[in-house]
């Protein structure tokens, strides 16, 4: 779990370095997809499924009563993660680099691979969380990427005053 790094508060009037409170950064992204649009693309473009979804994702969705919604939700999840990273589909990245996997409780989690994983390491991403939903032909996903604390100096007024 990420915790803000704290430095002992200096006494007022002393020569001391400023109080530093390094806080984790949270990057967020959201995407919404028309289910029917994605289903039509998958039907018209036979190669699209394998390019966008991993075998594991396709296996999870196929056979489910509302497979289209699940696939659309996963596509939105991929895009929301990429938006949060600020890259979109950047150089050498693949849609399959962002993989949605359901945990034992059925909750969707994200596994990063390839160039997207490398970008996440560069951005010091410590944890990725997503949330999916569907209603009336639309699938929406939100992603939150929690990044390790940086070196931004900050002071808290109460501590700086030595209280």
């Amino acid at each position: 779990m990420l915790r803000p790094e704290r430095v002992p508060v200096p006494r007022p009037g002393t020569d001391a370095a400023p109080v530093r409170m390094a806080l984790p950064r949270v990057l967020v992204g959201t995407d919404i997809v028309e289910v029917e649009r994605l289903q039509r693309l998958l039907t018209e473009q036979p190669g699209l499924g394998a390019e966008v979804f991993t075998a594991r994702e396709l296996a999870y969705c196929e056979g489910r009563r509302r497979a289209g919604e699940h696939l659309a939700g996963r596509f939105a999840a991929k895009e929301s993660v990429l938006k949060a990273l600020g890259t979109g589909l950047g150089p050498r990245m693949r849609w399959t680099d962002v993989e949605v996997i359901n945990d034992v409780h059925g909750r969707p989690r994200v596994a990063l691979h390839g160039a997207v994983a490398a970008k996440a390491v560069e951005a010091r991403v410590g944890h990725v969380d997503i949330s999916l939903s569907h209603v009336k032909g639309l699938a929406v996903a939100s992603a939150a990427l929690v990044c390790e604390a940086g070196d931004e100096p900050a002071t808290r007024r109460d501590e700086a005053e030595g209280t």
């Binding site: 994605l38 693309l41 473009q45 190669g47 596509f75 895009e79 990429l82 589909l89």
Partner: peptide, 10 residues
């Protein structure tokens, strides 16, 4: 949007 780009490229 991203899904449109997929469609265009295919």
């Amino acid at each position: 949007e991203s899904i449109d780009l997929l469609d265009i490229l295919f």
